[in-house]
């Protein structure tokens, strides 16, 4: 391996690592606020890429129909569970966000998709279709489990992953897609040929991470989310609507997922089930960083990207084995250093 190849692999690794960083940071965020390990984040990413691809082809993406299905399901289930508690105002809001909005979006996409309105439209449409899904998924699957243990929530998250992968196949089919990058072409940087596409991925990633920083450090809502994660009862007592924080966290997750999907669609071929591995690699990063710190998670995710890139070169068949095995020594290290850990029931 010469230095050019090494640098090329590094570029590849950092770019993939940037995507994993977005995933990892999202998982930390969702976990902090809701204690849910949101494995299905990967599916949202894959769906976003598939949506862009469909729009590029002038077709109506499966997500437009999926959103209608999810909205109807969320509204129906909430009605069934809590019809005694619901106020007329809440019902109206539900009608608007769960039924009118998805159907409106579907009709709009049916009208506009065949016109192939180009990159900006595709991005906006993808965000519009994906972002509402976050809180819909939360309301359908997780809200009734809000008081459950981390273990139960994790099993539920795996169940959601299973269902979403199945739905993905139904709505998108088994074909793989690749989207056109935001920027094409290359420029030389020393001995290295850098793709503009790589630059765009990095810039968008940094913007998202920066945006998250500002949100959590500077805004009342961001602080309220953090506070809910630190002390749920304390947050309720200052008037934070903690039930809504789960929805907000999931909406953020879906937004970042949509952005990640738009980015990754141009880097590699995406299938309906590609999300799982992408999600899990971001997750490896989050675990390496202890499911706590955002900057460490981002760094660890870039490390995962590099590890993957170099192992793909040296032992391509064992790429995944190497990436996922890295967790084991880290867990070993944690088990040796953690010493006395508290009971789960002590922390609640």
């Amino acid at each position: 391996m010469n230095s050019t190849i090494a640098l090329f692999l590094a570029q590849d690794g950092i770019i993939n690592g940037a995507i994993y960083a977005l995933v990892g940071v999202t998982l930390v965020l969702v976990f902090a606020v809701t204690r849910i390990i949101f494995v299905p984040q990967g599916e949202l990413i894959a769906w976003a890429a598939l949506t862009v691809a469909a729009l590029e082809a002038g077709a109506v993406p499966g997500t437009a129909y999926l959103l209608v299905v999810l909205g109807a399901a969320a509204a129906a289930l909430e009605l069934a569970r809590e019809w005694r508690e619901l106020t007329a105002r809440y019902l109206l809001a539900m009608l608007a966000t769960d039924l009118a909005l998805p159907i409106g979006l579907l009709l709009a996409v049916i009208q506009l998709a065949p016109l192939k309105l180009g990159f900006t439209f595709n991005v906006i449409a993808t965000l519009a279709l994906l972002v509402p899904m976050g809180s819909l998924i939360y309301r359908i699957a997780f809200q009734p489990l809000a008081e459950a243990t981390v273990l139960v929530l994790l099993i539920a998250a795996i169940g959601v992953h299973f269902a979403l992968v199945g739905l993905g196949l139904v709505f998108f089919g088994a074909e793989g897609v690749r989207t056109t990058p935001l920027l094409s072409g290359t420029f030389p940087l020393g001995p290295l040929v850098v793709k503009w596409q790589s630059v765009s991925v990095l810039v968008v990633t940094l913007l998202v991470l920066g945006g998250l920083y500002v949100f959590f450090e500077r805004t009342m809502m961001g602080k309220a989310l953090r506070a809910t994660a630190v002390n749920r009862l304390g947050a309720r007592l200052v008037g934070v609507p903690v039930r809504a924080t789960g929805r907000i966290a999931f909406t953020l997750a879906a937004t970042i997922g949509a952005v990640s999907g738009i980015l990754i669609g141009s880097l590699t071929t995406i299938y309906y089930d590609s999300g799982f591995l992408i999600g899990l690699k971001g997750f490896v990063g989050a675990i390496l960083a202890g499911l706590g710190s955002y900057p460490l998670t981002a760094l660890a995710a870039v490390f995962v990207g590099l590890l993957e890139s170099y192992s793909a070169f040296f032992a391509s068949a064992f790429k995944e084995v190497i990436v996922f095995s890295i967790i084991i020594p880290v867990l070993l290290w944690r088990s040796l250093t953690s010493g006395t850990h508290h009971d789960e029931d002590e922390e609640v």
């Binding site: 009342m220 953090r226 002390n231 304390g234 007592l237 008037g239």
Partner: peptide
Amino acid sequence: LVPEKRELFSTMSVEDNLRLGAYRFGS
């Protein structure tokens, strides 16, 4: 309510704790 166990946001700064007290009015 100021609860028996205080229920502070222990990993956040004193100022952030106070800011959150004004959640109902906004920043």
